[in-house]
């Protein structure tokens, strides 16, 4: 089980074990919260020194998904950069790697709270994007129309097994919306069981799709430990 299928507002979507969402009908791959340049930003602000390789790792994982699926469109759901300065400070090698991935495809950057303004990287920009029955935006709106796809919360789920608990990033989906896990490395996460704000967004019968191997679907609230 490396992926799970979900249907949202009539669109058949595939939640990948990697944390990416694949819309086969439109050949569109969607990822949330890359947080590129996170270590650079923390170091710049005088915090803990994380090595700069996490950006490269995130791009490498994205490249693997692109190689596997060959999408026509790559859609980043905001917070693609940890802040505006880290977009400018992106090392040349990473910039080139992104450009190579984008070659021959449409690349769309949605705005997030970490990267609200335009940055110099190639690709289109938007606040929200409506495609067919679906609407893509960075953070879910409580009163959104059915068919909303968003990121922002970095959802995770803790599951109790006979051998102890297990915690993994997850997709959350109900009839109206789907929330993606963060795709970036070292981005942490928000546990559904301990976040009322996140829990309030989804319905009681929502499902969680755990990333990783195996990629499985669980009832979000019933499984939460």
């Amino acid at each position: 089980m490396i992926e799970q299928t979900v249907t949202l507002a009539g669109a058949r979507l595939t939640a990948r074990g990697s944390g990416a969402l694949w819309w086969a009908e439109r050949r569109l791959i969607c990822v949330a919260d890359l947080h590129l340049g996170k270590s650079e930003r923390i170091a710049r602000r005088g915090g803990a020194l994380l090595p700069p390789y996490e950006t490269r790792e995130t791009i490498a994982r994205l490249a693997a998904e692109i190689a596997a699926l060959d999408p026509a469109t790559v859609l980043c759901l905001g917070d693609s950069f940890d802040d505006m300065a880290s977009a400018d400070a992106l090392p040349e090698a990473d910039r080139a790697a992104l450009a190579a991935l984008a070659r021959g495809r449409d690349w769309i950057w949605l705005a997030g709270n970490h990267d609200p303004a335009p940055h110099g990287l190639d690709g289109g920009r938007a606040e929200t994007l409506a495609l067919g029955p679906l609407t893509f935006r960075h953070a879910a709106l409580p009163e959104a129309e059915p068919g909303e796809i968003s990121g922002h919360y970095h959802p995770k789920l803790r599951v109790a097994l006979r051998t102890g608990t297990l915690s993994r990033p997850c997709f959350l989906c109900d009839r109206r919306r789907l929330i993606l896990p963060a795709f970036g490395a070292y981005t942490g996460g928000l546990d559904l069981g301990s976040s009322p704000a996140l829990a309030a967004l989804i319905e009681p019968d929502a499902r969680a799709i755990l990333t990783g191997a195996p990629c499985v679907t669980l009832p979000a609230f019933r499984a939460s430990a």
Binding site: V159, D205, R207, P214, V216, L218, P219, R222, A223
Partner: peptide, 19 residues
């Protein structure tokens, strides 16, 4: 072994929740 149990747990919970 854990993967096996996670898959089993997922199946059981989904059935239990009627999903």
């Amino acid at each position: 072994a854990e993967a096996r149990m996670l898959a089993e747990a997922a199946e059981a919970l989904m059935a239990e929740a009627g999903l």
